Simulated scan of single mutants.
Amino acid sequence: MQLDAFLEKMNPAIHQSLRQSLELGKWPDGRTMTQEERDASLQAVIVYEYQHLPESERIGYMPAKCGSSGKKHDDKIEAEEASILRFQDA
C-alpha cells in the first residue's frame, strides 16, 4: 500500500497504535517490527501529525528554549569551575 493511500485511511486510533508500536518496537500482537516496518510507520506518523496535530504534540517536538537555560544554571557552572582544584608541579 502506498503512503498516500494509507494516510487517507489513517485515523486517531491507528495513529496512536503506530506511535505505541514505534515506542515499543513491537506490533500490538507482540511481533517485533522490522526496520522497514519501523521506517514506514515512522514516516506515516510524521506526515499524519504534520497534517492533523499542533506542533507541540508532534513526535520530536522541542520547545524553542529549554527550561534549564537560565541564569541559575549558568551561575552553577561558574561556581563548579571555580571550585576545581589545580595541582602544580613543585
Rank of each mutant, 00 (worst) to 15 (best):
A44T: 11
A64D: 05
L53E: 02
I59N: 12
I46H: 03
A44F: 11
S56Q: 13
P54C: 03
G67C: 12
R38I: 08
S69K: 14
M62W: 02
G60W: 01
Q51T: 04
M62P: 00
L42F: 10
S68Y: 09
Q35W: 06
S56E: 14
E36N: 15
I59Q: 15
Q35E: 13
E49F: 10
R58A: 04
P63N: 00
E57A: 14
E57P: 08
I59M: 15
H52R: 10
V45A: 14
M62D: 05
Y48A: 02
K65F: 15
Y50R: 09
S56A: 09
E55G: 00
I59T: 14
E37K: 01
L53C: 04
S56L: 05
S69Q: 13
S68E: 07
L53Y: 06
H52A: 01
R31K: 09
S56Y: 05
Y61L: 01
R58M: 09
P63L: 01
P54F: 03
S68T: 06
I59F: 15
C66N: 14
Q35T: 12
S56D: 12
Q51C: 04
Q35R: 13
A44I: 07
S56G: 04
S56C: 09
V45M: 12
E55N: 09
V47M: 00
P54G: 08
P54N: 06
D39E: 08
L42W: 02
S56F: 10
T34V: 02
Y50F: 05
E49C: 06
L53K: 06
E57D: 15
R58K: 13
L53P: 00
E57M: 13
C66D: 13
A44E: 13
G60L: 01
Q43N: 05
Y48H: 06
D39H: 05
G60H: 04
D39M: 08
K65V: 13
H52P: 04
I46L: 07
T34C: 06
G70K: 04
E37G: 12
A40N: 15
R31G: 03
R38G: 06
Q35I: 11
A40V: 15
D39P: 00
S56N: 11
Q43W: 05
Y48W: 14
Y61H: 09
Y50T: 10
L53V: 03
Q51G: 01
Y48P: 02
Q35A: 13
L42M: 09
T34R: 13
Y61R: 03
R31S: 05
S68W: 13
R58Y: 11
C66P: 10
R58T: 10
L53H: 02
E49A: 10
T32G: 05
Q43K: 12
Q51M: 14
E36W: 03
R38T: 07
S68M: 12
